[in-house]
Design a protein around this nucleic acid. Structure first.
Length: 674
RNA sequence: GCGCCCGUAGCUCAGUUGGAUAGAGCGGCUGGCUACGAACCAGUAGGCCGGAGGUUCGAAUCCUUCCGGGCGCACCA
């Protein structure tokens, strides 16, 4: 509702500026005055115009106010001039409350297919807290975009890229074969054992991966003569990697078995958080279906890729680096980015360019094969194949816009891919390519110590230490979720002995997921999260459970009053005499609650435009705070005046409705009790 | 050396694209459960917005520079 008024106000003022001063301002700032006593919206437009019109801001504001007041936009009661030249807008409170109650709000959405890539964990070990941040950010953003009951939204596809032929999977294969002495059959047995005894292969690989990484550099008992041994181990690693890339033979089969099974564990872990995917493109198919060949032909044809004939990159196919100055004819660009090595193999960025051409439907003659891989209650998740494609599979490429949820350490390669698209003449695609960048999750030294890691002296004073899969240093996603559930369960058991066990567990899970998702979303994207168990396990203050609790309190009011929330909202349409209450001094806190509740679509729009889910998380918390404040100031059930009681009930219902919606976008459920 | 990010209350962070008196949570201190549930609320203390210049009606926000921190910069993947 807030956004509806904001949009109509902006349009009116733009029209006035055009007719009166012949000025066109494409963007008009609208803000909230510092105090509700000054009005509900404020426009500093007069300051902006002062220099162009060579007139005092206050004089301009006065003229604008007069014109606006002569023909007020719907819902506006009065426009006045304040301070040095602000245009302050006062709304018709009763009319606005009725419109909010009737759920009038500006729609959001548009045409086109948007592809979101997130999670993308190497399938060689258990997911950790850093992966959780990625998946929760991506999943939340997907929810912001998707069509739903509140908005028409955008068509979206969610994909999770699987690097199943990379060096990390190779490392685990080296561990299985050379440290554990396993062959293909033994690996099959291991996987069967894991499933039968409820052990997790991804946890097993977590430890094995750390051991292998250490093994590569461990000089052993005779450091002086270790060099040949270590070189041989490195060679083993390379040979294994090449076997995976080639895609056939026992080594590749072992890798495929392990990667596929670890991937299933990842999907299960993410499903605990309500995170689902539509498609899993795998690197193995990018290789076997020769995506690169098509990309290479296109890049060469468009003059983006060229062979270097001298200097350090002699014999390589290279492209200009993103942001580099243009070179003079005949000069050697020593700084160029190598795409194809002198031995003919393609680099990671090269494969990524091919993949992104496919995403935009720009890779001629190439597509994945698709088969179902994993079943969600409402839809299947598809995976890539080089074999026969299932004819019922939907289309995944040909996106109009893409969002890559990838951490900020990948800034350079991401820029390089965009630069390649731009250089090929796909300006439009490049401009619809969003690197949804975010900073890593680290750990406080205290948490690292709690986990039993030896933290070096010099790191103890630092605010955080880096999570490292290679060192096995990190918090596994499932361990954290389990601990959160246990902590929530203790509380729920205490508070609700009357409920049966499955119900208490279900509520505890909702609270745990609420706490976790909110924790990962409350920080803006480029803030490094220093993970701390004490903080993450907190259910008080600026947390998910705080918001869930506000919803439970509101729901209790409707239950005890016998008036359902939706009836409380419909009732308000018929009731007279709201204005005096809303305009009174004590009614102001009611009005502020309505105003806060009406801002959801504004905040959604902001979150989408800036690709920043933290704005929505912050909003949900602020609205819950506003509701709790209202809850303490006004006692609904003991209110005897029918008009006041109806208004109080509707106020609670409006906050309740928007809190549930906001949490829904954050992927957090509202428990029935807690 | 080059590029990107960050520096705001004791701690952890917001700050709506340059606006009115810089805000939350945690922690500290004072209070509030026989009223819709205290996973809550109210009050209080706590700030040279890293430093210095500049841009203008107006700067935590933009520019320059310095200081301090983080992360990237391979024919590795």
């Amino acid at each position: 509702m807030y956004r509806t008024i904001q949009l109509s106000l902006q349009a009116r003022i733009q029209a006035i500026l055009l007719s009166r001063y012949e000025i066109a301002l494409p963007y008009l700032a609208v803000e909230q005055p510092p105090n509700i006593a000054l009005g509900e919206l404020a426009l500093p437009v007069a300051f902006e115009l002062a220099k162009r019109l060579r007139k005092a801001p206050r004089a301009i504001a006065t003229e604008l106010a007069a014109e606006l007041n002569a023909d007020l936009p719907a819902g506006v009661a009065l426009v006045e001039v304040a301070g040095a030249g602000y245009l302050n807008i006062r709304l018709d409170r009763a009319a606005t409350v009725r419109r909010i109650a009737a759920d009038h709000h500006a729609d959001l959405g548009g045409p086109g297919f948007r592809l979101i890539e997130h999670t993308s964990i190497n399938p060689n070990k258990a997911a950790h807290i850093g992966h959780l941040r990625n998946a929760i950010l991506g999943d939340t953003f997907q929810r912001l975009l998707r069509p739903d009951a509140f908005k028409s939204g955008y068509q979206v596809g969610v994909q999770n890229y699987i690097d199943n032929t990379g060096v990390q999977v190779a490392d685990v294969v080296v561990g299985l074969v050379h440290l554990q002495g396993m062959n293909l059959d033994r690996v099959r047995e291991l996987l069967t054992e894991c499933l039968e005894t409820n052990q997790r292969i991804d946890f097993y690989c977590w430890d094995l991966y750390a051991r292998v990484s250490q093994w590569y550099t461990d000089p052993g008992p005779d450091p002086a003569n270790a060099a040949p041994t270590l070189a041989a181990r490195k060679q083993l690693r390379l040979d294994t990697l090449h076997a995976l890339e080639a895609g056939h033979g026992e080594t590749a089969q072992i890798a495929d078995l392990i990667a596929t099974e670890v991937l299933r564990r990842h999907l299960e872990t993410m499903l605990r958080l309500g995170i689902e995917y539509d498609f899993l493109p795998r690197e193995s198919e990018i290789l076997s279906l020769h995506f690169w060949d098509a990309a290479r032909a296109l890049m060469t044809e468009r003059g983006v890729l060229y062979e270097e004939t001298q200097g350090k990159n002699k014999g390589c196919l290279v492209m200009r680096r993103a942001g580099a100055e243009a070179m003079a004819e005949g000069d050697t660009d020593e700084d160029a980015k190598v795409i194809v090595r002198s031995n003919g193999t393609v680099t990671y960025v090269g494969k990524d360019i091919a993949y992104h051409l496919w995403k935009f439907g720009l890779l001629p003659g190439k597509d994945f094969g698709y088969i179902p891989f994993f079943n969600y209650p409402t839809h299947p998740c598809w995976i890539s194949t080089s074999g026969a494609s299932d004819p019922t599979a939907p289309t995944f490429g040909k996106a109009d816009a893409i969002y890559n949820v990838i951490d900020s350490r990948q800034n350079d390669p991401q820029n390089q891919v965009q630069e390649a698209l731009r250089a090929m003449g796909f300006e439009d695609a490049a401009s619809r390519y969003t690197h949804f960048s975010y900073a890593m999750v680290a750990m406080t030294p205290r948490t690292a110590v709690d986990l039993g890691y030896v933290v070096p002296e010099e790191d103890l004073a630092k605010p955080f230490v880096e999570v490292s899969g290679r060192k096995g240093l990190g918090v596994k996603a499932d361990d954290l979720i389990d601990r959160l559930i246990t902590a929530a369960k203790t509380e729920v058991d205490n508070r609700h002995p009357e409920l049966d066990e499955p119900e208490r567990l279900a509520i505890s899970q909702q609270i745990a997921i609420g706490a976790l998702r909110f924790f990962m979303l409350r920080f803006t994207r480029n803030t490094i999260i220093a993970f701390d168990f004490k903080e993450a396990l907190s259910f008080e203050g600026e947390t998910g459970p705080y918001i869930q609790y506000a919803i439970v309190r509101a729901a209790n009011i409707f239950r005890k009053s016998g008036v359902p929330a939706d009836e409380a909202l419909t009732a308000i349409a018929e009731i007279e005499g709201l204005e005096p209450i809303l305009s009174s001094e004590e009614g102001t806190s009611l009005w502020e609650t309505w105003l806060a509740a009406s801002r959801l679509s504004t905040v959604l729009d902001q979150s989408i435009q800036s690709a920043e889910p933290a704005y929505l998380a912050k909003y949900a918390f602020t609205l819950a705070q506003q509701f709790n404040n209202f809850y303490h100031r006004h006692h609904v059930l003991t209110e005897t005046d029918p008009t006041r009681r109806a208004l109080l009930l509707a106020t609670a219902a409006a906050a309740h409705r928007e809190l549930i919606r906001a949490l829904g976008y954050l992927g957090i459920e509202a428990p029935p009790v807690m």
